[in-house]
Amino acid sequence: SEFSSRSGYGEYVQQTLQPGMRVRMLDDYEEISAGDEGEFRQSNNGIPPVQVFWQSTGRTYWVHWHMLEILGP
Rank of each mutant, 00 (worst) to 15 (best):
W54Q: 00
E37V: 12
F53P: 02
T60Q: 09
I47F: 11
G35K: 03
E11M: 12
D36G: 01
V50Q: 08
P73R: 12
S4F: 07
S43G: 03
R59W: 01
G10K: 09
M21P: 08
L71W: 03
G8D: 11
S7E: 07
S7A: 07
V23L: 05
T16N: 00
V13P: 01
R59Q: 12
E37Y: 05
Q55N: 10
G46K: 13
S43A: 12
Y12M: 07
I70S: 00
Q51G: 11
I47V: 14
M25T: 01
Y9V: 00
S7L: 13
G35F: 01
Q15H: 00
Q42A: 08
Q14W: 02
P73H: 10
W65A: 04
Q42D: 10
G46Q: 14
L68N: 01
D36Y: 00
N45M: 08
T57F: 01
R41E: 02
R22F: 02
G46P: 01
P48T: 12
L26E: 02
D28L: 08
G46H: 12
P19V: 06
Y61G: 13
E39F: 10
Y29Q: 02
W65M: 00
L71G: 01
P48I: 09
W62N: 15
V63R: 03
E30H: 11
S43P: 00
F3T: 11
G10N: 05
S4R: 09
E69S: 10
L71F: 03
S7V: 06
S1F: 12
V23D: 04
G72D: 12
S33A: 15
Y29S: 06
N44Q: 15
R6Q: 14
N44G: 15
V52G: 03
W54R: 02
I70W: 00
F40E: 10
S56E: 06
I32P: 02
A34M: 14
E11V: 09
N44W: 15
R41D: 00
G10A: 14
D27M: 11
M67A: 05
T16A: 15
G35N: 01
I32A: 14
G35Y: 00
Q14K: 15
V63I: 01
D27S: 13
Q15D: 09
P49W: 06
L26C: 04
S4P: 10
R41T: 05
T57Y: 14
G46W: 11
V63C: 02
V52D: 02
S43Y: 09
L26K: 15
E69W: 13
R6L: 11
M25K: 04
V52S: 02
G8E: 15
S1W: 06
E69P: 03
V52F: 03
Y61T: 15
L71I: 14
D28P: 06
T57P: 03
D28Q: 06
L26I: 09
D27V: 14
S56P: 05
V50F: 00
Q55S: 11
M21I: 06
T57V: 13
N44F: 07
V13Y: 01
D28H: 05
T16C: 07
Q51K: 12
P49Q: 03
S5A: 11
R59M: 11
Q55W: 14
N45I: 09
F40S: 04
S7T: 10
G20M: 10
